[in-house]
Every structure is written in structure tokens, then in C-alpha cells.
Design a protein around this nucleic acid. Structure first.
Length: 597
RNA sequence: GGUUCCGUAGCUCAACUGGAUAGAGCAACUGCCUUCUAAGCAGUAGGUUGAAGGUUCGAGUCCUUCCGGAAUCACCA
């Protein structure tokens, strides 16, 4: 980027000197030269042609020659039609590289002055986490880390959906069919244990309604008359009225679930700073709705239900309080949002990581918060992502057609293990290192697989086809990193001190070396772009590109050629910086690195 | 039906916000391990960017209309 800006400035000068044409910097576009053309950067002449008043080839020649004479950056040029391709001076690239080498250490001291809140995961407490949650968690975790890398203090939070009809279903099924079993007695993870009873409930319910349907009832009526449904609803009522026995059961089962979630989060290497529980925030929103009522932002219907009319803003009318006085999801979200900004008052914005099925909900929520007068409402952002499809359609937890998170992780670890053994790479690992290796490889394969896709797009996941470990994958990037570590190790053994390198003796850079330096310079911009667009996928692409370019370089040019001169040192220095950028990138994607594999 | 999003190689994804001959990976085929890790590198093949119009020097990208898919529009969460 820095290079692009400098080229732009030089070109403005040339436009003025040679053509008497004043052009603003925003109107100049410097692109990366495509691979099959010679050069690193390209100026597109077309947009300027009408101001330059000469024909294309003359314009190109004039600009190119002028730059050849004056430029501190450009070493030579070539013209293809309306495109002017530039090569960059070796001295200049080395200069820039040197400054990175020096500045690298200073960077980490930067203070964290800005704050944001990031919400992600936010599960229901009636079932274990599945592949859909994984996409959510990886996205939220990575976005948090990207902002942290940019100097933000990030508050990672989730809202736990711990109350409602769904958990009552599990509770009822456990009472009816559980026979006093516990996760301990069954040697089952707590979330799995509770989830099984949820599925059991749905099964029994289906049986019952089917019978009623045979008797001639419609599906809807069957559901209404079903004894199980009536009983579940009585649980919900008892819960809301504070029935001690129900509350006790509710707490017990939720704790089983939390225990299970904790294990999953731990295996994913993901943590939260604070959990919000719906059971303790659902009343908060009501207070705010009352305030909105007195400000006439909301209105009351005859049946006492409370609404907001957003038809002027191109939305619908939206219910906020039911006629029986109970709150809905929207009410709770209003309360939770306000609470969070009270808890973290310095936060300038909040990012909600929630699936795209709730796009409309969040548009309305932010609109309401804005109308209530909260200045931060405009800074709230819904990080919306696409669903994960299986080959035969969407995952449905009610029907048990989900890919379980824990099972998938276990499977990935086994695959990592098998591959490692097949490749015969176990020689110098002790068993503890082995476990760590499998773990990191498996997680980076899985995380990268889900993060490399633009969040907005849906992902098709085929359980029959395993996630790749070759090509554009997490393990490929890990491999590149590990390779470099062994280069660095060897350099150390040979006592090559690349840090006190004299760059003046490096006369020539290969195309790959130039590309690597160029990519290194672009790291920060890619990080910023990832943050601005809320897309870790940009960072994935970037670090893949860097790894791929490095591997080409690695394969084509020997680093240790026996001479141990400045060229050797330079190549080690280049490798060192590359590896630290790979490590930082992987870290911001939520992954650890391995030194050998 | 209204609104929003998506459609790119057989498959999974890119394409710097309007630039060159649309790029990678997987799968297929051909080479490369007695010097730094072959989970790699180099190469071959694979495309009417869902369709048709329009805007201009120039369109996968912008506008219109179709076709196909998804989400949402509940006193559900």
C-alpha cells in the first residue's frame, strides 16, 4: 500500500509536468500486475486519456520515460495497450524491508484505547453445539482477534438462551423417561445427555399427534390438544411464576449443559469474557419499553399489547409486549443491548454474530435502539452469515440431522493422526507433542475450512467427503510455517546472524522475493480490510497467498548454498518475517501454530 | 405475494469494489525427493461467469426483465 501511494504521487507529478494535467490522488488506480504480465504494479491509462490529449502509446511512453528518469521507486516499465506495468527498484524494496525488520518489535507495545463488544455463539441450552455453531464461533472469535490485533480492547460475550419452551421439553422428557439417570451415571457429556431428552420429547410428541391425526384432527389441533404439549406449557408457566421444584430441575439440567459447553469451548480453544443469561435479562427490556411508551415511540393496543410502527421506515409494525404482559425476543434484545453498554460504557460499537435468518430482526432492533435515543445504536452491526447445508438440505436439530461439533472435532483429530502416521512424520515427537500436533492440525483444518468462505455465503458440507489437508487449507499454511522454523533453526546452528545484515551487498531480488516483500507490506491492510468488512476470509486468502508464494521461493532457490554470505542472510531474514506474519495471521484466525509437522 | 441475499471449471471457493487472456485448491493426467520438511513445487486439461437486453473505451462486478435457489415477513425463538 505504501508503495502504491508513493507511485501515485509520482504519477501525479508526471501528469502535471509532462501534460499540465492536474489529477487528484483518488482518481489514480494502481493495481497489482497480473501474474502473466511482467511487473509488480500497473497504472491503467484509459481514465486519463481524455485529459492527456495524445494517443495511447505516446502517453505511455512519455509517462514511463519520465518515471524512469525521476522515480525513486520504479526501475523499468513496459506497456501493453492501455496498461503501464512497473517493476520496482531492488534498493527501494530492500529499504522498505529493512524498516519492517526494525519496526516489528515496536509494534506490540501499542496501547488499547478503543473498545468494542462482540457477541457470538449464544446457544440454546437444550442441545449440544453443532456445525452451525462452529461457523458462528469461529467467525466471532476471529473477528474479536482481528480487532484486538488492530489495537482494540474486545469484550467477547454471548447470550445464553437458558429459558423457554425448549428447555422445558428436555425437563419434561427427563422426568418422564429419565429414570433418575445423570450424565455421570451414563458417562455422557451433559449437553449430549440433555439433548437426547429433547429429541426423545419430540419423538414422543410426534407419536401422540399422529394418533390424534388418525382420529381426524388437523395437525395444528393435534398439537394443541396433545397432552405432552399441555404439560410442557404448564412447566413454562410454573417456571415463570417461580415454582421452586421446577426451578431446581431447570438449574440442574442447565448446569449439565453448561458443563458440556465448557468442554467443547475448551477443545476449540475459545473463551468468553462474560456470559449473559436470558433468564436474567428478559425483564430488563420491559423497563425500556415503558420509557419508550412515555416518549410515544411505542403505542399500546386496546388488548394491552405494545407495538412500534415502523411502516414509515419501510418495515412492519412490530410487537414488543404481548397482550398478557410477557416479553418477546425483541424486548429482551433491547434490554441486553442497553445492559451491555452499561457494563462496557467505553465501547464504541457492538458486533452481533448471528445467522442471516435474523437479518430482519436486527434491522428492526437497531432501528428501535436508535429511536430510543442511544447514540451507539448506529454503530451496532449484525455480522450475518449463511447457513450450512448438508447434501440433503438444511440441518435440523429437531430431526437430529445435524453434524455434532464434538464428533466432528474428534474425527478431524483422527484424520490428522492418520495422515501424520502415513507420512511417517512421528520420529521426533513424544506422545504429548503428538497430541498437541494432532489438535492444532485438526483445528486449523476445520477453522480454515469454515473461515475461508465469505461469511455471507452459505456453505455446503458433505460429511462423506473429509475436509482437505492439502492445497488451500489450514494444514498447508501450518506446513509452510513449520518449514520456515526448520530453516531458522539451521541458520542458528550455522551461526548466521541475519539481524546485523548489510543490505548494500544484496544486489538482486528474484521475482518471488519481490512478491514476498510486497505481500509482507500488505499484511496490515488486509487485516484492516478484514475488520472493516467483517470477513476473516480476506485474511485467509491473504495468508494462503503468502504461504504459496513462499513455497515457490523455497523450492526454486536454495537458501543454504554453502556460501553463507549476505544473500543467505537476507533469505533467512525474509523467511523469518514471513513466518512471523503467518503466525500472526493464523493467531488472528483463532489458530495456534506448530514448529514442526 | 412484499422485502433481502445468492447463482463463476465436474466439486469447493477467489477475483483488490468497473480493467488485461476470469484465478486457486480438490478430483484427472505429466514431471521433480543422495543438499534446507514431497501435508511441497513445476506443468497439461477443464469456462458463453444462470439467460437476455442496457449503460461505456472496458461488465463476473452497475441498471432492467426473466429463470433457478435460499431466508424473512408470527402475541415462535
Amino acid at each position: 500500500m505504501e508503495i502504491q501511494e508513493k507511485i501515485k504521487k509520482e504519477i501525479i507529478q508526471v501528469f502535471e509536468d509532462e501534460f499540465n494535467y492536474k489529477c487528484s490522488i483518488d482518481n489514480i488506480n494502481i493495481d497489482q500486475t497480473p501474474k502473466n504480465f511482467d511487473g509488480l504494479y500497473t497504472l491503467i491509462l484509459f481514465p486519463h486519456l481524455k485529459y492527456l490529449k495524445e494517443n495511447l502509446s505516446e502517453v505511455g511512453k512519455k509517462i514511463g520515460d519520465a518515471l524512469n528518469n525521476k522515480s525513486a521507486i520504479i526501475s523499468r516499465y513496459n506497456q501493453v495497450k492501455g496498461f503501464l506495468n512497473f517493476d520496482i527498484k531492488t534498493e527501494y524494496l530492500l529499504d522498505v524491508f529493512k524498516s519492517i525488520l526494525n519496526q516489528k518489535k515496536l509494534e506490540k507495545v501499542s496501547k488499547k484505547t478503543k473498545e468494542i463488544i462482540v457477541e457470538f455463539s449464544s446457544p440454546n441450552t437444550n442441545k449440544p453445539l453443532h456445525l452451525g455453531h462452529l461457523r458462528n464461533i469461529f467467525l466471532g472469535d476471529s473477528i474479536s482477534k482481528i480487532y484486538e490485533a488492530l489495537g482494540y480492547k474486545v469484550h467477547k460475550v454471548q447470550i445464553i438462551n437458558d429459558r423457554g419452551i425448549h428447555i422445558c421439553k428436555s425437563m419434561l422428557a427427563w422426568r418422564k423417561f429419565g429414570e433418575g439417570k445423570t450424565p455421570n451415571s451414563q458417562k455422557l457429556k451433559g449437553d449430549k445427555f440433555v439433548g437426547d431428552f429433547y429429541v426423545k420429547f419430540e419423538k414422543e410428541l410426534k407419536k401422540e399427534t399422529k394418533k390424534l391425526c388418525v382420529k381426524g384432527l388437523s395437525e395444528e389441533d393435534a398439537l394443541k390438544q396433545s397432552k405432552l404439549m399441555l404439560e410442557v406449557k404448564s412447566y413454562l408457566k410454573k417456571w415463570e411464576s417461580g415454582d421452586e421444584e421446577i426451578l431446581k430441575l431447570w438449574k440442574k439440567m442447565n448446569n449439565w449443559v453448561y458443563d458440556g459447553f465448557e468442554k467443547t469451548y475448551k477443545s476449540l480453544n475459545v473463551e468468553f469474557d462474560k456470559n449473559y443469561y436470558e433468564s436474567s435479562t428478559y425483564l430488563l427490556g420491559k423497563k425500556n419499553v415503558d420509557q419508550g411508551l412515555s416518549k410515544k415511540i411505542f403505542y399500546k393496543e386496546k388488548d394491552n399489547s405494545v407495538w412500534i410502527d415502523l411502516t414509515k421506515e419501510n418495515y412492519d409494525k412490530k410487537l414488543l409486549i404481548r397482550s398478557d404482559g410477557t416479553s418477546v425476543y425483541m424486548t429482551q434484545d433491547i434490554g441486553t443491548a442497553i445492559k451491555r453498554f452499561e457494563d462496557y460504557p467505553k465501547s464504541e460499537k457492538q458486533i452481533y454474530t448471528v445467522g442471516n435468518e435474523q437479518d430482519y430482526h436486527f434491522k428492526v432492533l437497531f432501528k428501535i435502539l436508535d429511536k430510543l435515543g442511544y447514540s451507539w445504536a448506529k454503530e451496532c452491526y449484525h455480522l450475518s452469515y449463511g447457513m450450512i447445508d448438508l447434501p440433503d438440505g438444511k440441518m435440523k436439530s429437531r430431526e437430529g440431522t445435524v453434524v455434532d461439533a464434538d464428533e466432528l472435532i474428534t474425527l478431524m483429530k483422527e484424520t490428522a493422526k492418520n495422515r501424520t502416521v502415513e507420512l511417517g512424520k512421528l520420529d521426533d515427537f513424544d506422545s504429548k507433542d503428538q497430541e498437541r500436533l494432532y489438535n492444532i492440525i485438526a483445528l486449523s483444518a476445520l477453522k480454515y475450512h469454515l473461515l475461508k468462505v465469505d461469511p455471507r455465503k452459505r456453505i455446503l458440507f458433505n460429511p462423506e467427503e473429509s475436509i482437505d489437508f492439502q492445497g488451500n487449507t489450514g494444514p498447508f499454511i501450518q506446513y509452510t510455517y513449520a518449514r520456515i522454523q526448520s530453516i531458522l533453526k539451521r541458520g542458528k546452528m550455522l551461526n548466521i546472524d541475519f539481524k546485523s545484515l548489510n543490505f548494500d551487498n544484496v544486489k538482486k531480488l528474484s521475482v518471488n522475493e519481490k512478491r514476498i516483500i510486497d505481500l509482507i507490506l500488505k499484511h496490515r491492510n488486509n487485516l484492516i480490510k478484514s475488520a472493516e468488512t467483517y470477513s476473516p476470509s480476506i485474511l485467509c486468502n491473504y495468508v494462503y497467498n503468502l504461504s504459496k508464494t513462499y513455497n515457490s521461493f523455497y523450492q526454486e532457490e536454495k537458501i543454504f548454498d554453502g556460501k553463507n554470505n549476505e544473500t543467505t542472510s537476507f533469505k533467512i531474514a525474509l523467511s523469518d518475517i514471513t513466518s512471523s506474519i503467518i503466525r500472526e495471521s493464523l493467531n488472528t484466525l483463532g489458530m495456534d501454530v506448530v514448529n514442526k509437522m
